[in-house]
Amino acid sequence: MWTSIRTLKRFTLKELCQHSGISASTARGFLKPLMAGGFIKARKDGGPVVYQLMKDNGAHRPDITNDGKKKKPDGMQRMWAAMKVLKNFRISDLTLAAETVEQEAKHYCLYLTRAGYLRSVGDVYKFVQKNDTGPHAPRVMIARAFKVYDRNTGMVVWPESEAA
C-alpha cells in the first residue's frame, strides 16, 4: 500500500483502495499512523477526504507505531546496522555497537553465517557486502526449526532446502 501512496501522492480513500486492491477498513488502519506521524495529510473540502503524501520515506514504509512515533529498532535490527558499519568484528564489538547481550549476538551471528551474510575466521566475523539486501535486518525465526528470513527479498535464505 505504501507503494500506491507514493505513486498517487494525492488521493481519496476510494482511489487508494482501487490502486492497491485492499479494503477501505484496511486502508484506514494503514493511514491512521501515517497521519499521526505527519507522513500523510487529510483535507476535506466539501467532497470526499483527500489525502496527500507530505513526507516520502523512500521505498520502504515508515517504521512507526500506531500513534505515529518512530519505532525503536530491535536487537536484530541494531546488530544488522552495526555489522554493516563495522564490516569486520568480534562478538564483543557487536554487543557494544548494537547495545545487546553476548548470547543474542552469538545466536544471530551463527545463523547469519549459515545463511551467507557473514563469514567467520576464528572469532572474527566479516560482513559479506554482496549479500547486503537492504535496510531491514534478516530475521532468525523459530517455527519448528530455525530459519533465516530476509524481509528485503521476502525469501527464506537458510536453510537452503527452503530457500529455493
Rank of each mutant, 00 (worst) to 15 (best):
M1G: 15
T3H: 13
S4T: 12
T7F: 13
L8E: 11
L8R: 14
K9Q: 14
K9L: 08
F11M: 05
K14D: 13
K14S: 11
H19F: 12
H19V: 00
H19R: 15
H19W: 08
S20A: 15
G21L: 03
S25L: 12
S25F: 09
A27Y: 01
A27H: 02
A27I: 03
R28S: 07
F30G: 02
P33D: 01
P33I: 00
L34I: 02
L34K: 00
M35K: 15
A36T: 02
G38T: 06
K41M: 09
R43F: 09
G46Q: 10
V49G: 06
Y51C: 04
L53D: 06
M54A: 13
M54H: 05
M54Y: 07
K55F: 01
D56G: 05
H60A: 13
P62L: 00
D63C: 05
I64V: 11
N66T: 01
G68C: 00
K69I: 01
K69F: 09
K72A: 14
K72N: 13
G75W: 15
G75P: 12
M76W: 11
R78K: 15
R78Y: 11
V85P: 03
L86F: 00
K87Y: 08
N88L: 05
F89C: 10
F89I: 07
D93H: 01
D93I: 00
L94N: 04
L96Y: 11
E99Y: 10
T100N: 03
T100G: 07
V101R: 13
E102L: 01
E102R: 15
E102F: 02
E104D: 11
A105V: 04
Y111C: 01
Y111R: 00
Y111S: 02
Y111M: 01
L112C: 07
L112F: 08
G116L: 05
Y117I: 07
L118S: 06
R119F: 08
V121D: 15
G122F: 02
G122T: 10
V124W: 01
V124I: 14
Y125H: 12
Y125T: 08
K126E: 14
K126W: 01
F127S: 04
F127H: 10
V128E: 14
N131Q: 14
D132H: 13
D132C: 07
T133D: 14
G134N: 11
P135C: 08
P135V: 09
A137G: 08
A137R: 04
P138T: 05
R139V: 14
M141Y: 13
I142F: 15
I142T: 14
F146Q: 12
V148S: 11
V148N: 06
Y149T: 07
G154V: 05
G154T: 03
G154N: 04
W158F: 12
W158E: 00
P159F: 11
P159T: 03
A164F: 12
A164G: 14
